[in-house]
Computed example of a mutant assay.
Amino acid sequence: MLESPSYPAKLTARQQQILELIKTAIAHTGAPPTRAEIATELGFKSANAAEEHLQALARKGAIELVSGTSRGIRLRSEHLQSINDLRGRQLAQPFSVVNQLMLPLIGRVAAGSPILAQEHIDQIYHVELGLFQSPPDYLLKVRGMSMRDVGIIDGDLLAVQSTQEVKSGQIVVARLGDEVTVKRFIRRQHLIELHPENADYKTIVVEPGDAFEIEGLAVGLIRNSFKA
């Protein structure tokens, strides 16, 4: 019977750099990088080179590779302790531009699961921090035209700050039952209203006892150059 390699096994400088890159990506985005993103960050000619290094890290027991997903990289438990230490800091090496954010793009959200669950993340974008009024935590792909009159249209990427502390009149990402929606949040005395910015859509009234939760606050918008 073959024994798994003991850990910590000695890593090369490049392997250690990739391991730190993975930890930094998870700390800032909640998801590991893809092979293509690793190749871009470290100047590899192809994603295959990144894959070879990941396979070496897996053989040495530093990570676990999960087949069937582009972000199928898991850290060993001892590395998870350092993730919280990285959160909230500026991006450090090997991510070279400290005034950029790495934001996960959220596609369709499965009913009942956290909006930042890894299976919802389509890809990661590098964007300038100064584009937003407040630092966002993720990008949400807008579906539909209910917010057309404030310039938010189908296919836009809405920059969202994860928070439940919002004020009446702000544009929010809300979960109502099994649906996630972007609307203007209005607080009434005994209920909450989610207002569209398009006369073709009806206001959603949230009454006491309804399954309702604020997922985040809209802090910016990206169009065209990142539009899928």
Rank of each mutant, 00 (worst) to 15 (best):
53 H>I: 03
96 S>D: 06
101 L>R: 02
102 M>G: 08
66 V>Y: 07
59 R>H: 10
64 E>K: 04
63 I>M: 04
39 A>D: 08
68 G>P: 05
66 V>N: 07
91 L>Q: 04
93 Q>E: 15
94 P>H: 05
55 Q>W: 09
55 Q>E: 13
92 A>T: 13
45 K>C: 01
49 A>Q: 11
58 A>S: 14
67 S>I: 08
97 V>C: 08
56 A>W: 02
106 I>M: 01
108 R>P: 00
104 P>N: 05
39 A>R: 01
51 E>S: 14
66 V>W: 06
108 R>C: 10
84 N>Q: 14
70 S>L: 14
54 L>S: 04
107 G>V: 13
44 F>P: 05
107 G>P: 04
92 A>I: 09
48 N>W: 03
46 S>C: 04
61 G>H: 01
94 P>Q: 05
44 F>W: 05
70 S>W: 10
54 L>V: 03
100 Q>A: 06
43 G>H: 07
64 E>N: 06
88 G>W: 08
70 S>R: 12
111 A>Q: 11
56 A>R: 05
56 A>K: 05
42 L>H: 03
71 R>W: 03
53 H>V: 05
62 A>L: 06
53 H>T: 00
48 N>M: 04
102 M>K: 07
49 A>R: 12
96 S>E: 10
42 L>T: 03
51 E>T: 11
87 R>H: 09
81 Q>A: 10
101 L>T: 03
69 T>S: 15
101 L>H: 03
84 N>C: 01
110 A>L: 14
80 L>C: 07
41 E>Y: 02
109 V>L: 04
75 L>V: 03
73 I>F: 01
104 P>R: 00
116 L>N: 15
54 L>P: 01
90 Q>N: 14
82 S>M: 09
104 P>F: 00
89 R>N: 15
62 A>C: 11
77 S>Y: 07
58 A>P: 02
94 P>A: 02
85 D>G: 13
94 P>N: 06
101 L>D: 08
50 A>N: 04
61 G>D: 00
103 L>K: 04
78 E>K: 01
101 L>W: 01
55 Q>K: 15
41 E>C: 04
69 T>A: 14
91 L>P: 01
73 I>A: 02
65 L>C: 08
102 M>Q: 13
73 I>Y: 01
84 N>W: 08
103 L>P: 05
73 I>D: 00
74 R>K: 15
88 G>K: 05
68 G>L: 10
93 Q>K: 14
64 E>Y: 07
112 G>A: 07
55 Q>V: 13
67 S>T: 14
59 R>M: 13
61 G>R: 00
115 I>H: 01
68 G>E: 14
107 G>F: 14
